[in-house]
Amino acid sequence: MSAVAVCSRRLLEIACHQAGIPSAGAEPIRIAGNAIWRLPGRIVARIGRPDCEAVADKELAVARWLADSGVRTVRPAVMDKPVLVEGRPVTFWEELPPHRPGTAGDVARLLKQMHRLTPPSSLHLPPLAPLAKTRHQITGSDILSPGDRSWLKNRADQLAEEFDRLPPGLPACALHGDAWDGNVAVDADGTAYLLDLENVCYGPPEWDLVSTAVKHLTTATVTAAEYDAFRRAYGVDVTLWSGYPVLAGIRELRMVSFALQIADEHAHARAEAQHRVDCLRGRKGLRPWTWTAVP
């Protein structure tokens, strides 16, 4: 077990003790920025990033709202509030039945449901700020050359200005914030569930549609047929909107900065992070590019 996983297990054991939940036999599902563990009794624990208690609170509240509104999603278990351990919030969730990742069509159908809802004022959803983390990840990266860092920071500044001048589009609504097939689970009966509510916010619905479009046009991980199913299920082709290049550019930059963050923690991801930087800088030819997933 890696040092990161050992530390994560220690935090998990402390949180479970505070919540009165057995931790013996816990199994890691994913150890990354947010660590996810499977516990006995069909409970899943999620260990958030440091100083993100408010985000964890929001996740629990959003999950309750979506479930009460008829949108299938993960449901809180055991406690209505996060357990705070060494500055990191730990939340507990009901484990889903056996499932597979969703399709592009599944993503579109769940987004359409969510976007039609009016969030209660008690949720206090933050406005979409798509570059907030990105600038920090670029500035804090240890692997960037001075030239690459300067270029990425300038690109972020340019996109921020363009985001503030987005052309009119669909009416603003509650957004998932990180809508892709990996954040949708489908059980054996075909029921689709919306996962990972950390980035739920309020803003232009096109933001939730751009991720799948970018995976089609930028990285070619979504086929033409899959994208066609996505746009038909939602009823909108976001690539035809004049604001698409701006949101797509932001999404691409976020995918690069995420890889930089992972590369700072996992040396084996450094080549992929640099490859993505090189693509954005025009060193690898035209889109679509081949990008490999980072843990």
Rank of each mutant, 00 (worst) to 15 (best):
Trp207Gly: 03
Leu170Gly: 13
Phe163Val: 02
Gly177Val: 02
Ser150Arg: 11
Tyr244Ala: 00
Trp241Cys: 00
Pro204Gln: 09
Ser211Glu: 10
Gly169Ala: 07
Arg231Trp: 08
Arg231Asp: 05
Gly203Gln: 00
Ala185Thr: 09
Gly182Phe: 07
Lys215Phe: 13
Val200Met: 12
Glu198Trp: 09
Ala160Phe: 02
Val214Thr: 14
Thr212Met: 07
Thr218Arg: 11
Ser150Ile: 09
Leu170Asn: 13
Asp208Arg: 03
Asp157Met: 11
Tyr227Ile: 11
Arg165Phe: 05
Trp151Glu: 03
Pro171Asn: 12
Arg232Tyr: 10
Ser242Ile: 05
Gly190Leu: 04
Tyr202Lys: 10
Val236Gly: 04
Gly169Lys: 06
Ala224Cys: 10
Gly169Glu: 02
Arg165Asn: 08
Leu197Asp: 02
Gly177Arg: 02
Ala225His: 15
Glu198Asn: 12
Leu152Ile: 05
Leu159Gly: 03
Gly169Leu: 07
Pro171Arg: 08
Pro167Tyr: 03
Asp181Arg: 06
Ala229Lys: 15
Ala224His: 06
His176Arg: 09
Glu162Ile: 05
Gly243Ile: 03
Phe230Asn: 03
Pro171Val: 09
Leu194Ile: 15
Thr239Ile: 09
Arg155Trp: 14
Phe230Glu: 14
Ala225Arg: 12
Val184Thr: 10
Leu197Pro: 04
Leu209Tyr: 07
Tyr244Thr: 01
Trp151Arg: 14
Gly169Ile: 11
Asp178Ile: 08
Thr239Ala: 02
Asp181Met: 15
Thr221Leu: 13
Thr191Gly: 13
Asp189His: 11
Leu175Pro: 03
Pro245Met: 03
Tyr193Lys: 13
Thr212Trp: 04
Trp180Gln: 06
Tyr227Leu: 11
Val238Phe: 00
Asp228Arg: 05
Gly169Trp: 02
Ala160Gln: 05
Asp157Lys: 03
Ala229Thr: 15
Arg232Gln: 14
Leu217Ile: 12
Val186Trp: 06
Pro245Ser: 02
Asp181Cys: 12
Ser150Lys: 10
Asn183Thr: 09
Asn183Glu: 14
Ala179Val: 13
Val200Thr: 15
Thr191Val: 15
Val210Ala: 04
Gln158Trp: 08
Ser242Lys: 06
Trp151Ala: 09
Pro205Thr: 05
Asp181Val: 10
Ala192Arg: 06
Gly249Met: 01
Asn154Gln: 14
Phe230Gly: 00
Ala220Asn: 15
Tyr244Glu: 00
Ala174Arg: 01
Gly203Thr: 02
Arg149Glu: 04
Ala213Asn: 07
Thr218Ile: 15
Pro245Asp: 05
Gly243Asp: 07
Gly203Glu: 05
Val236Met: 08
Pro204Trp: 04
Glu226Ala: 12
Tyr244Gln: 00
Gly203His: 01
Leu217Arg: 09
Asp189Leu: 11
Leu240Thr: 15
Trp207Gln: 01
His176Lys: 12
Gly243Ser: 06
Thr223Val: 13
Ala174Ser: 08
Ser242Gln: 11
Pro171Leu: 05
Asp181Phe: 11
Thr221Gly: 14
Val200Gln: 04
His176Phe: 10
Asp181Ile: 10
Asn183Phe: 11
Trp180Ala: 11
Ala225Trp: 12
Arg155Thr: 15
Thr219Arg: 07
Glu206Met: 05
Ala174Tyr: 01
Pro205Glu: 08
Glu162Leu: 06
Val214Ser: 12
Asp228Thr: 14
Val246Pro: 01
Leu166Val: 14
Pro171Thr: 08
Leu195Ala: 03
Ser211Leu: 14
Gly182Ile: 12
Thr223Arg: 15
Asp237Trp: 01
Glu162Phe: 01
